[in-house]
């Protein structure tokens, strides 16, 4: 759902699907690179077990996600009836409103939750503190840039 909302060509669903297909192929390649690296490089790297697991999980996740997106997109491109249903479901304004509201809620919870977590993390781990602070800074800068962009656009 998150990916779908980003990979969108307004007003042309077929173009959107073709765009998604290319994106899925690129991600498939990325996942394959991750898997190859995991099998060839990670065993000799001396990385801790947790990091190795994360590496494999991320590569496999990207690969599977890309495969599912690719199969689904190709199916929709070849079946006009299913494509029409998917388009209505995806571009339905209530659905879009629900997704946008969910994004907003997730953003608020993440930002204010992170602000609260800073107080807990600071005495425990400085690395985690700065990582959290950086994530909040990225959020704030993205908000400011987005605000300036939409002020001009709308």
């Amino acid at each position: 759902m998150l990916m779908k909302s980003f990979l969108n060509v307004p007003g042309d669903y077929e173009k959107t699907l073709k765009y998604r297909q290319r994106f899925a192929l690129a991600f498939l390649a990325l996942g394959l690179v991750g898997e190859v690296c995991y099998h060839l490089l990670v065993p000799q790297s001396g990385l801790p077990e947790f990091a190795q697991g994360f590496y494999q999980g991320a590569a496999a996740g990207i690969l599977m996600g890309a495969l599912i997106l690719l199969v689904r997109t190709r199916y929709l491109l070849r079946h006009p009836e299913a494509r029409k249903k998917a388009q209505v479901k995806e571009q339905d304004e209530r659905e879009v409103t629900i997704i946008n509201n969910s994004f907003r809620l997730a953003g608020h919870v993440t930002f204010f939750g992170s602000a609260g977590a800073l107080f807990i993390v600071l005495p425990l781990n400085m690395g985690a503190f700065f990582a959290l602070l950086a994530a909040m800074a990225v959020y704030a800068v993205t908000f400011a840039v987005g605000n300036a962009y939409y002020e001009k656009k709308l």
């Binding site: 209505v88 479901k89 571009q91 339905d92 304004e93 209530r94 659905e95 409103t97």
Partner: peptide, 17 residues
């Protein structure tokens, strides 16, 4: 060109078009 759920929500007044 919307879902049936949207019509249901509109009719019940939960959603404004």
């Amino acid at each position: 060109g919307v879902t049936r759920q949207t019509i249901i929500s509109l009719e019940s007044g939960r959603y404004n078009a």
